[in-house]
C-alpha cells in the first residue's frame, strides 16, 4: 500500500502578511513558513495507514520553491519515508490549476494506491488543487474525510457534507482530502528529526516528470492576481456602557436595532 501525500508550505497563520512593491504578491522574506495545517492531517493519516499494514511507503510530494524542503523534512520527521519536491527555475508564477497539472504529472511517475491531500491550503484558500489533481489523474476523489478504512482494494470514508456526514466507498487508487477531526497529527520527536535528515528527498524539474517548461509560462495561467490590498479597516469598536448585565444588554439591543439595523 503506497500512499502519496500532497504537501504545501504556507506562511505561519500568525504571520503578518505584507504586500510586495508590485502589489501582486506577498513579501516572502521574513516570513515563518509552516506545513499547511490540513496537510499535517494528511501526513498523519498516511503514516497510520502504513503503520497498520506494516508495509508500503509514504511519499510526500510538494510543488514549490527550495524552502519547501523544510516542510517536507518535517513530514519525514513525523514518519513519512521519502520526499519529492518539484521545483523548476523556468517556472514563474503559478495558479491552482497549473499546480494541479504539475502534481498530477509527478504522481504519474510515483507508485501510489492512495493520494491524501489537505482539503485546502490556508494561504490562497482556493480549495481547488486536490479535485483538479483527481480529475487530471482520472481517479475518484472523496473530500473532507473524517474517518477512513481500507479493505482489499476499497476505501470506505466518512466525509463532512454541508449538512451532515456521509459514508461513501470507492475502489483504489483514489484521492481523499482531510477535514479536521480525522486525527491528531503527531509531533516529530528529536531522534526522528535527526533520522529525517538521512531520508531520501529528491528535487525534480518539470522535464523529469515529463512536462515541457515552455508550456508553463505566464500565458498558461488561468487565474492571475491583478492586485492585492488590505481589507477595509473596521470602524472602532463601540464599547457598551452600563452597570448591570440588563442595562448593557438593553443598550446593545437598541444599538443593533437602530444603528446597525441587524435585528
Amino acid at each position: 500500500m503506497n500512499v502519496v501525500v500532497l504537501l504545501k508550505q504556507v506562511p505561519d497563520t500568525e504571520s503578518l502578511i505584507e504586500i510586495n512593491a508590485a502589489a501582486d504578491g506577498i513579501k516572502a522574506e521574513n516570513l515563518k513558513w509552516i506545513m499547511n495545517p490540513y496537510d499535517e492531517l494528511a501526513v498523519e493519516e498516511a503514516i497510520r495507514i502504513r503503520e497498520k499494514r506494516a508495509s508500503g511507503k509514504v511519499t510526500v510530494l510538494s510543488f514549490g520553491p527550495e524552502r519547501a524542503t523544510t516542510a517536507i523534512r518535517t513530514a519525514l520527521a513525523m514518519g513519512a519515508d521519502e520526499g519529492v519536491l518539484i521545483n523548476d527555475p523556468a517556472l514563474g508564477k503559478t495558479d491552482p490549476m497549473l499546480t494541479a497539472k504539475v502534481l498530477a504529472a509527478a504522481l504519474k511517475t510515483l507508485p501510489f494506491d492512495l493520494v491524501v491531500a489537505g482539503q485546502r491550503a490556508v494561504d490562497d484558500d482556493s480549495y481547488s488543487v486536490p479535485s483538479a489533481v483527481a480529475e487530471y489523474l482520472g481517479i475518484p476523489m472523496i473530500g473532507m474525510v473524517v474517518r477512513q478504512e481500507i479493505n482489499a482494494g476499497t476505501i470506505r470514508c466518512e466525509q463532512s457534507l454541508q449538512d451532515g456526514t456521509a459514508v461513501v466507498e470507492a475502489d483504489l487508487p483514489a484521492l481523499l482530502t482531510t477535514q479536521r477531526g480525522l486525527n491528531q497529527p503527531r509531533y516529530a520527536s528529536l531522534p526522528n528529526i535527526m533520522k529525517a535528515k538521512k531520508k531520501p528527498l529528491e528535487t525534480r524539474n518539470l522535464a523529469a516528470i515529463g512536462l515541457d517548461a515552455a508550456q508553463f509560462g505566464p500565458g498558461a495561467l488561468k487565474t492571475r492576481i491583478l492586485s492585492l490590498a488590505f481589507p477595509p479597516q473596521r470602524k472602532v469598536c463601540k464599547m457598551i456602557p452600563g452597570e448591570t448585565a440588563e442595562e448593557k444588554s438593553a443598550r446593545l439591543v437598541q444599538a443593533l436595532h437602530e444603528e446597525a439595523g441587524v435585528l
Binding site: 490549476m97 482556493s126 480549495y127 481547488s128 479535485s131 480529475e135 473530500g143 473532507m144 488561468k222 487565474t223
Partner: peptide, 24 residues
C-alpha cells in the same frame, strides 16, 4: 455557489475544460 459540493464540481469542470476559476 461555494458550497462543499459545488467547490468540487466547479474545480473538476474547470480542469475538464482547461478554464480559469476563481474560488470563494
Amino acid at each position: 455557489s461555494a458550497s462543499i459540493r459545488d467547490k468540487q464540481l466547479a474545480t473538476r469542470l474547470a480542469a475538464k475544460l482547461d478554464a480559469g476559476l476563481a474560488m470563494e
